[in-house]
Amino acid sequence: MNNFFRKLYYGDIPEEKTGAGSQQVPKVSPTGGDSEGASDWPLWEIFIRSKQGLDHKHVGSLHAADAQMAIENARDVYTRRMEGVSIWVVESKHIHASNPDDAENFYEPAEDKVYRHPTFYDLPDEVKHM
């Protein structure tokens, strides 16, 4: 096997393309070629529910070719230290976010409306745990 003596035998990935010491994003496909890159794989947002938790919490994101692979990647990347018992994945492009520029008119009007908190009721002594 001549490739045993070649430096590339780990995965056919030329070193200048593995990203070390270079600013540019390596475009490497799973088969080792460099035409179609992993950067073509869509980004997915990962939500994990822990054993005690009731809700899925956002834990991060990763790249995957489809939902199936995203779940498996999430299993490998985000649950290796027993973090969870259930995984949700959502392609990042399907998440719509509020614009930080809207913060002023979105959130500040609520600041002087303390009466929206239900703290103005007299609670009978018998009612506990409120």
């Binding site: 780990y10 995965g11 990935i13 593995t18 490497v28 496909s29 799973p30 088969t31 080792g32 992993a38 794989w41 990763l62 790249h63 995957a64 498996e72 990647n73 490998d76 990347v77 290796r80």
Partner: peptide, 18 residues
Amino acid sequence: SEWCGHGPVLEQDIAITN
């Protein structure tokens, strides 16, 4: 384990190392 740090993408690098 020889793939560790050489995987085609980060996620699969972790998968094969697992």
